[in-house]
Amino acid sequence: MRPIATTRSASGMPTGLLAVWWVVASEIVIFGGLLASYLMYRLSHDSWSEQAANTNTAIGATNTFVLLTSSFLAVSAHAAAEKGDGKKAARYLWYTIGGAATFVAIKSYEWYTEISHGFTITSNTFWSFYYTAAGIHALHVIAGAFIMAIVAREAAKGLELHRVELIGIYWHFVDIVWIFLFPLLYIAK
């Protein structure tokens, strides 16, 4: 049973939507603090470019493509949910989860290769940042996929369709973080 409080919207925004934006705000500063620290170190350690040269741009670009595509699928789910088509929305959400799985699979392969070449999290502070930033991001991808599965199951029954938009907003934010991680970790060499 939902309290009456949840159904009110004095700010002019549905409660869930408002809360998701606050989640995004709190995430901006978590990634912001991490990436600001990384930037400061990176700019003052020229020698890191030798380390950065070992990252695999092709894999990074592929993963960017995967995430952009999954974002497009998530927004398509939102469009379907707006029309009240829960089944279609759920289907698109499952495609998005597929995107997340592909992303994590590619990431695992990439890390496996790098670690087996000796580039571990302790070998250099560049790699420490590389694994920490991408790792926290990957955790967000995995968490988002789980939440999306819950939303998709409900949406397939035509329930809680507004949640499709909410998980979408979170998902696009995770996408945006990667949009910045990609040049920071893979392109600047």
Partner: peptide
């Protein structure tokens, strides 16, 4: 990032304070 925020997240359709909030977070960073 701006494209995703505007076209996928519909930040410009939300009330103005959402954009201000996001900008504030970035400015503090």
């Amino acid at each position: 990032a701006l494209l995703v925020a505007r076209k996928f997240m519909h930040i410009n359709e939300a009330p103005k304070f959402i954009s201000y909030l996001m900008t504030t977070c970035l400015v503090f960073m």
